[in-house]
Design a protein around this nucleic acid. Sequence first.
DNA 1: TATGAATGAGGATTCATTCAT
DNA 2: AATGAATGAATCCTCATTCAT
Lengths: 188, 188, 188, 188
Amino acid sequence: MGRKQLYAESELLDVTKRLVLNHGYDGFHLKMLSQHLPGARSTIYQYYANKEEIVAACMKRVISNVYEKVSAVDETDPMSALQEVLTIYVEESKLHQLLGDANKINTNNSEAAARDLAFIEKVHADLKVQLTRLIGRAQQEGKLRKEVPLPVLVGTFFNLFNTPNMLNAPALQWSQMLFDMWVGGSGQ
Amino acid sequence: MGRKQLYAESELLDVTKRLVLNHGYDGFHLKMLSQHLPGARSTIYQYYANKEEIVAACMKRVISNVYEKVSAVDETDPMSALQEVLTIYVEESKLHQLLGDANKINTNNSEAAARDLAFIEKVHADLKVQLTRLIGRAQQEGKLRKEVPLPVLVGTFFNLFNTPNMLNAPALQWSQMLFDMWVGGSGQ
Amino acid sequence: MGRKQLYAESELLDVTKRLVLNHGYDGFHLKMLSQHLPGARSTIYQYYANKEEIVAACMKRVISNVYEKVSAVDETDPMSALQEVLTIYVEESKLHQLLGDANKINTNNSEAAARDLAFIEKVHADLKVQLTRLIGRAQQEGKLRKEVPLPVLVGTFFNLFNTPNMLNAPALQWSQMLFDMWVGGSGQ
Amino acid sequence: MGRKQLYAESELLDVTKRLVLNHGYDGFHLKMLSQHLPGARSTIYQYYANKEEIVAACMKRVISNVYEKVSAVDETDPMSALQEVLTIYVEESKLHQLLGDANKINTNNSEAAARDLAFIEKVHADLKVQLTRLIGRAQQEGKLRKEVPLPVLVGTFFNLFNTPNMLNAPALQWSQMLFDMWVGGSGQ
DNA sequence: TATGAATGAGGATTCATTCAT
DNA sequence: AATGAATGAATCCTCATTCAT
């Protein structure tokens, strides 16, 4: 019964992701969003109650997706696990940029947004924990320099995937190159 | 001679820089700016014709400053020059974040903003050229791995100073640590 | 310095009072308000942050005014005090209708509105207390029927001034007529 | 033949009455109404063409109901007739409050609402006529004070049933108490 | 008949900018 | 030069109503 939907919720979130990445949280408007979707602006409110909920849902979906993939990685060997994890992050390389806007979301108006944000923060912390665990183990096993403080190793690793992919290499190849440089360094 | 000015232009730009970094270009309002300065909101228009010009002038000043320091570096030995340059960038580590907002500035309303933006882009390109030159020479001199494509070396170097300084180390020390890891890698 | 104001805050509240009485809280719009004032709609926001604050301030002013007058009444003789108090209420006969909308004001968005509302409720309670005290004393002194429960006496008195003034009698005369009927009844 | 109706028209009007009383005409929404009924919001349009018609029909039903009961009262003795009439009004004590919103209904869009409103006004006038007739006769018969102008007697009587029933007495008892006070007054 | 989806009109609010003192 | 007041454009959001299944 009822009419056919003009677009699916997931399409809405896809477009939102693209626009928030291009324009930032404050530069993202529902007018803009509706211009990139069929139908009228007010139709968007059939899906989400307000701007905050849209962006929160979008971020939640992105980070959930990463979390799922990353949780499936076999951690037996920490170094190859790190390589695999890096590939996943490289594929979703804008994750950090997106999450950087998370704290701008005003959750006073919306329960749902508040819940999504709490979830996002939880998962974000979990991801850091996993990385710290893997890097710590690799260090223990003598694969990584012991004199470098763990937070620094984690920080440089986490920052790695922001590197602009100037060669436009495919994700896997690019991630291997980055990992290789992270481990081996640029020096001769 | 009229009244004394309420504040210097440089104060205005200092506050602007801080606020744009904290809130992003679209999250930055003149109301906000005036609340962090003495005097009324409308007084700001005695200094700059519009919001765009303020932010453009702010960015111009920051990048000019970096450019000046970086131009003064002795390039005789490329590796130590790179280390010195990195220190300068680390001191102004938010440079990239700030410049990331540059493309949001609408230059249709303002000649001055357009001119500033052109300048910013020019200097930005010059900085990359300098870095590419230094890294290229270091590679030639056998200090950096020859099989790594130059753009990748430049990219990872340029991305280096976005690494969050989790230890809150002083700039010089932090820059040395980052350089050491960039050259030597994290691996044992 | 600065321009001359188009209207005073008190004018704004006067118009608001009239409009809220005619159209009810939900029927009252800022568009409507601005159409009854000089200047643009957005100018209203120079005076109050939002609709809620306007209506709360309006109600606060009305009830404060009544409270002030009523507090000045000499309570030595409860019956003549009641007559005086009634005259004051009759002059501001729409008080109850106005306060009836007070509970519709959403105070989540506004500190100021919440404060004003709390004040309104406090004063409202004080007014009831005063009335109860006067009527109680009159009852004690044998001026009012002892077998009628005090709340009923208070209720009928408080309801008295909602009676439509069909004769358009002047306030004092009308209030005396109502008081006479309240005390003596309609019966022969 | 066809589906069974989700709910009866009278249920719809019952809920409408309750909601209009609680929230006022402008605070009453079809969304709200549908949330207190089974089925979807759009289903309401199977019963009534628009919001105006719903509220008009609701008010018409309420006032018709009162009119019917009040018409059945034996008017032989005006005083006991008045007492009986008062009981009926007390049972439907929110009548005035409801009718107070009648003038807010915009009848430009709807014939039916216009017709209902005309009916309401007619009956409202009839009710006043009946009351005036009864009170006039009681006055003639020497049961009510002759020096009090008839409109004042009618006005105070009509206003009587707005008195808040603070004791939560049953309707009959409450109405007797009010009548007693209206006739005999509060005084000793 | 029932309904989920779509929509446009309308009101709230913010903010850059201009005006007038 | 400084500023308080005024404003219009732009965004957010809600709601009555219509559409299409």
